[in-house]
Write a protein that binds this DNA or RNA. Structure first.
Lengths: 186, 186
DNA sequence: TGGGGCATGTAAGGGGTTACATGATTGA
DNA sequence: TCAATCATGTAACCCCTTACATGCCCCA
């Protein structure tokens, strides 16, 4: 049900499903993904629940579109979700599942290679994030203090991505070093 | 399909679905969860695919049980999975979705409280992990070098959990500090 | 004799992905 | 005119969760 609340949150400004998807891909995609084929039915359900209202408007750029806006009921549901406990969902780290069974390969060199490839992947992601930061963010704290609220909090979640990727790399380094030590001691 | 490979990996030793679930909860639960109601049908499918063979044996502790063992085909599928690229699955961080929209609360004190509660949650998890480490792990590196392979690699994935939780806490601290600075500057 | 651990499943439903269908408008 | 972007949707399928059904064995 989190997607429902995310859409509610994004509807701070009225928007169509298609526009919401674009916002998604620009700002939330680092920790949440959603396809149009999931967004449209969800919006429909939210409308039926009375969380949003929709109207069809003519678009100059293509076919007609449906613009949705939050209702009072939507406001209060969003508020409730944000006022509740932080939600700690399940995690399923596929690469960790692979890493867990590396002994099955019976070849430390292959395990080492796995972690090196994993590290390279994390580095690519980290570089992408740092590039975004370079393009969008200022230096120091004064810059942060003048950001409007609705950009400040998203920025904090963006920082989470950088923290996570940096730590993933540090963990890979630790593993690589442990594996190398083991290989030498044989 | 990752569950399939995990079960294949756990079937290094023949085991029943019930026993696999116990192993799951002891070792993999920090980065992967699975219910019996998902494990049983998956094992059935794996058997049909010829990845494992099963036989019913009498149990002294309860009803009959089905013990599964990996076939050669299962060995080679597992090997392929481990030899392939590290898999970077989707992530969906519910708490980050909440954090993204904190400006909707229009009250910095509530946002601050959110991050404090989040930090407390991460600290609880970290303490659980550290307690497990204290009970199961030795000091320094000599201890690590004498671990058998099939305990060494799982230990590395366990370390991932500690890294992730520590970083989550550091991120919360950063956010709390930014929010406090903002509140003072108003 | 009744509860708890052992043991295997089915059913219903939620959330998400991939693929497909449809059609308007703009610009090369 | 043809591809790209805008725009909305449906269908089939996969993975997973929650709840339920069944029955054995042991010990208090």
């Amino acid at each position: 049900m989190t997607l429902k609340y995310i859409l509610l949150g994004l509807l701070d400004e009225p928007a169509s499903g298609y526009e919401l998807k674009r916002t998604f891909d620009l700002s939330l995609k680092h920790f949440w993904a959603a396809e149009l084929s999931q967004i449209y039915p969800t919006l429909k359900k939210m409308r039926e629940e009375g969380l949003i209202i929709g109207k069809t408007v003519h678009s100059a750029l293509g076919p007609d579109k449906k613009i949705y806006a939050r209702t009072d009921k939507g406001d209060s549901e969003l508020n409730q979700w944000l006022s509740g406990e932080p939600l700690h969902g399940y995690y399923r780290f596929h690469y960790a599942a692979q890493a867990f069974f590396l002994s099955e390969l019976a070849d430390s060199a292959k395990a080492l290679h796995f972690y090196q490839a994993l590290k390279a992947m994390f580095e690519t992601k980290l570089n992408e994030l740092k590039e975004i930061e370079r393009l969008n963010c200022g230096e120091g704290d004064e810059w942060l203090n003048v950001l409007p609220e609705n950009e400040f909090y998203p920025y904090l979640t963006f920082r989470m991505g950088i923290h996570k990727m940096s730590t993933n790399i540090a963990w890979c380094d630790e593993c690589i070093s442990h594996i190398e030590k083991r290989m030498k001691s044989k």
